[in-house]
Design a protein around this nucleic acid. Structure first.
Lengths: 257, 257
DNA sequence: CGTTTAGTTGAGCATGCTCAACGGTCGTGG
DNA sequence: CCACGACCGTTGAGCATGCTCAACTAAACG
């Protein structure tokens, strides 16, 4: 077995493996191996056949796509996240490219093993369906965020989201370089700068990666976060405490394919 | 049983029911009923709890979302299409609203029945996973279409796509009102008009719902369709002849949740 | 100490939206 | 049968959001 038990533990804690029993988990992991990649390594290009499910355990990965000399970022992933799950289920070619942003540690699970486990164990299969459904809904949120909000509103909501995740304190630290954040929010670095200065009205001040909030109420009045777009503001919105299956992604951050 | 056998047949022909055996199909359909709705009926609002999987058998449905007095169209569905599948799997609230565009006939399948069948029959569960994965990839295509192409390019690709679907003839008939088409392509009706006139250079002429192509080569040179965005141009791209699981959707048309 | 890279700022431009006006079509009702 | 109104689609003018390009600063790294 090429994976350490500590890693196996971490992997079992991601949603859809948590519900698998031991034999199913073991079979799903058949042939899996752990690999390290330096920053800026292309893991996968658009159109490549997909043979493995990728599970990011350490580092950061950008999912993107291009056409006619344009490029766009679809999501930035942080551990622990799976990606390319949909392509694995369908045994089809990748629709996006994946590139490491930092030195990263990635578990690669053969698609065959995963599909076999799904077909043999209905409970596990259902868990994968839940994961896929969560990813789907993450994308829907992402599209709504993009089509219904302008860049300043997206930034405002991003900041409020980070504030919630980092414990409701009045200062947060940005988890990405500003250039990466700009790509995540669907704008240029120049416009991110300008968006930040527009928010100074609302008590937002920036110093490097540190952001301070002096008037959260005013910021919320501009941002108007909603559980129908911003997953974190989902108080009791997922009916059965299953919030874990639905993670924010895409323009909202993390988890994908 | 409230559904006619002719309808049952049509339903069985959509991807993920096709793979179910008879008992599983029967159980999944427990409590299902067929309902007719007039045009412009709201079937579901954003944030509503979802109790049924909807299957559109006749008519047309628009999926949309709103925020702060803005509204946007996420997809237009045509028969036979399921929708709200992801929310059903997760037993959670809808992220989009659904409205009939025409008089429609919709089969409503209780979420409980569907989830139970998935948990009891791994083969059926896998088929649902394939469906979800296909929906996911449809959304990814949709986002790429939107972020990487300007409005004229989206229209050009839409027209080429329709041409392929309608049999590669040199004239097609638009399946929607232009106002609806505009929403589908993510622009205003005014801009759709302008986009059409920009395409007259490329041999495209419009008369009502009829569009004629006099220079397909030129149009393709502008549109540059690719299987990584436009599903139809997938020659042999899905590895195992499973193309049926992946339908175009969202900005590309039809099939969703 | 030079070089590189991230971030900011400004000017000009492009894509797409809003608002208003107008023509054509269809359905209704006089 | 015609007249009216409603609505779809088109066209034009002006505007807004966001992008490109360029210059400049500051910090990081050799």
């Amino acid at each position: 077995m090429t994976i350490r038990s500590a890693d196996a533990e971490r992997v079992r804690n991601i949603s859809f493996f948590k519900q698998a029993d031991d034999p199913t988990f073991a079979r799903a992991m058949t042939g899996a191996f752990l690999q390290r990649f330096p920053a800026n390594t292309t893991l996968l290009m658009e159109g490549d056949p997909v043979d493995f499910l990728y599970i990011l355990l350490e580092g950061a990965v950008e999912l993107g796509a291009g056409w006619k000399s344009k490029d766009t970022t679809l999501a930035i992933l942080r551990p622990v996240s799976t990606f390319i799950l949909a392509a694995v289920v369908l045994e089809s070619d990748s629709l996006m490219s994946a590139v490491t942003l930092e030195r990263s540690e990635i578990l690669m699970v053969p698609g065959d093993s995963l599909r076999r486990s799904m077909k043999e164990d209905a409970t596990f299969g259902f868990a994968v369906s839940e994961e896929l459904a969560g990813c789907y809904r993450g994308l829907v949120r992402s599209i709504k965020n993009h089509k219904l909000r302008d860049s300043t509103e997206r930034l405002a909501n991003y900041l409020l989201t980070q504030r919630v995740r980092q414990g409701e304190k009045n200062t947060i630290v940005l988890p990405h370089e500003k250039r990466v954040l700009a790509a995540l929010l669907g704008m240029t670095p120049e416009n991110l700068s300008r968006a930040f200065s527009k928010l100074s009205d609302k008590g937002v001040s920036v110093e490097g990666a540190h952001v301070r909030f002096d008037n959260v109420a005013a910021l919320e009045r501009l941002a108007r976060p909603t559980p129908l777009i911003d997953n974190h503001y989902a108080q009791d919105c997922n009916t059965k405490g299953k919030a874990f299956t639905e993670r924010q992604q895409g323009l909202l951050d993390t988890k994908s394919d």
